[in-house]
Each structure stands twice: as C-alpha cells, then as structure tokens.
C-alpha cells in the first residue's frame, strides 16, 4: 500500500476498494498471459494456416489456398485410414484400461497387509516417461532382445518369433498394449478415490438385510461409481484419441500407415514433411470431430437424465 496525501482513513477505504476490484486479476494475469500467448493465439493462427499454403522448406509458400487442403483431405486415403485407426486405438485402449483399472481399484479397496507398497508398485507405470514406455514396449516386442515373441511362439500363437510391430495386421496391438500398461493406474486411482468415498454404512445395512455380494455391487457400488465412470471415460476418450507419443515412438505410424492415428498424422505432416498448411487443415478437422463428440456425449447425458426423471 503506497502512502498518499489523503487522510489515513479515506486512503485506506479507497485503496482497499480499488485493490479489492483489481487484486484477483493481478493474481490471475500471469497464467492468463501464458495461456493466451502460447495456446490461444497459436490455436487461432493454426486455424488460419488450414487455408494457407505453408511449407517450411518452400520460401515462396504462404499464400491463401482457400479450401484446397480440405479438398485434398477428402481424397486422402491415409487420412481416412488414420480416422479408422483412431477409433480402434481409442476404444481398444480404453476398454482394457477401464476394465483392468476397475478390477485393480476393487482389489485395492480392501485393507490387507502391504497394501500401500503394492499400491505404489502398480501405479509406477504412470510415472514412467511416455517415450520410455514406448521404447520399452517396442523392445519387449522385438525378438532380438524382448521375451514376448518367444513366449508367444512357445504358446503356439506364433509359428516363429517375429516382431508384431512390423506386421501391418498386428502392429496396432503394440502401442495399445503399451497404452494399457501406462493407463491402468489412472483409472485405478480415480476409481479407488470414488470407491473410498462410498459410505461404509450402506454396505453394513445391506448385509443386515441379507444382500449378496453381487447385489451389493450392483445396487450400491455401481450407482456410486457411475458419475465418476461417465466423466473419466468421456475425458479419457478425448485424451487417448489425441495421444500420439506412443505411436510416434513405437511405429512412427507404420508399417504402411497401419498404426497412423489422426494425431500422429498431424505430427508427421508437420514434423517430417514440414507441410504446416496441410497439418493445420487435419488439425482443424480433428478439433471439429472432438467437439462434435463432446457435444454428442453431453446431449446423450442430458437425454438420459431426462428419461430418468
């Protein structure tokens, strides 16, 4: 508080009122400046690139091309392949992450000796840097150093040890397995937190009334978990659909684009071909699709809550 010429009492009132109005904005401003400069402005700029010819290696590029990128996109088989792969990658990963995460959360929800240690150990994959998870799993699938192909052969799943990452039909399983490994802890932690917030009295009351374990699970546990499940599934769908790191590290979208998802396709266009215009056009389409998905989920939830009441 700066000392002014005003009488102490009035100065206090005025400056307090002024600072009362301005203070919150001062606290928020550094974050706001960062987000606007590094996220919002690039987003708008990127959307404008979608209508321009911007190739880093071509100094004459930069002009407006209208809808040309989107027309190219309509006939780009690699893009439609990437769309299908995105759906496969997202729901394949999500299904296993969620199911296994839920089982793990239920297992950890009971008190047993050594639970804290076990909890730390099973949550560890979440802390492993994603590039390392990707590389590590790529090595696990590599017959030269990894045990997995040899085990698959011993089990009769493979005629001879080979790397599934170089087989276009199987390659997507590589990043999906890595993603499951990496993502189980996330679901386990969020669901465990939700489980632990369920009042214990409910189970006791149900036991007194003679409810079986399954009845209790269906009529107490699941309804309590439902909101958490709904929100995490929706948010995770979007997050996984955008999560290109594992694919870039493990397969780079190959072989023959068989593991290319839309997010990794954007990265490939920008990073390897340095075609920022086309990359931004794909990004714009991805943004619209994700927005449509989010709105669809919200509409669905609204319809369902209306149906309930």
């Amino acid at each position: 508080m700066q000392a002014g010429k005003l009488p102490v009492a009035r100065r206090g009132v005025i400056s307090r009122r002024l600072s009362g109005i301005l203070e919150p904005y001062l606290y928020v401003s550094p974050a706001l400046v960062l987000i606007i400069a590094v996220m919002l402005m690039p987003l708008i700029l990127g959307l404008s690139y979608a209508f321009r010819d911007i190739r880093i290696l071509n100094p004459f590029s930069g002009g407006f091309v209208g809808m040309a990128h989107f027309q190219t996109l309509l006939t780009d088989d690699a893009f439609f392949g990437a769309l299908a792969n995105t759906a496969w990658w997202t729901f394949g990963s999500l299904l296993f992450q969620f199911t296994l995460g839920l089982i793990l959360a239920l297992l950890l929800n009971r008190e047993f000796p050594g639970r804290r240690l076990i909890q730390a150990l099973v949550f560890l994959p979440w802390a492993v840097p994603t590039f390392l998870s990707g590389l590590n799993w790529a090595w696990m699938f590599n017959p030269v150093v990894g045990p997995l192909p040899h085990w698959f052969t011993a089990l009769g799943l493979m005629d001879e040890p080979f790397n599934i990452l170089s087989d276009p039909d199987l390659a997507m399983w590589g990043p999906i397995v890595a993603n499951i490994w990496f993502g189980i802890p996330f679901f386990a932690i969020t669901l465990l937190a939700a489980l632990q917030s369920i009042p214990k009295e409910l189970y006791e009351a149900a036991s007194i009334d003679g409810a079986t374990t399954r009845q209790k699970f269906i009529s107490i546990t699941l309804p309590f978990l439902a909101p958490t499940i709904a929100i995490t599934l929706m948010l995770r769908t979007i997050w996984i659909a955008n999560f290109a790191d594992l694919i870039v590290v493990m397969t780079n979208g190959g072989p023959a684009d068989s593991t290319q998802i839309v997010a990794s396709y954007i990265f490939t266009q920008a990073f390897r071909r340095l075609d920022f215009g086309y990359a931004s056009a794909i990004a714009a389409v991805l943004l619209v699709l994700l927005l449509a998905y989010a709105l669809g989920v919200i509409a669905l939830r609204r319809a369902m809550t209306h149906a309930d009441s």
Partner: peptide
C-alpha cells in the same frame, strides 16, 4: 478447455511463432 484440446495441433503454429 485447454486441458481437453489436442495440443498436437499447436505444433506448427508454435514453431512459426
């Protein structure tokens, strides 16, 4: 919203900025 959107789409414009 920033938590939800595909950061990968910012790669090109951030490079240009």
């Amino acid at each position: 919203i920033t938590q939800m959107f595909p950061l990968v789409m910012l790669i090109a414009p951030i490079f240009k900025i």
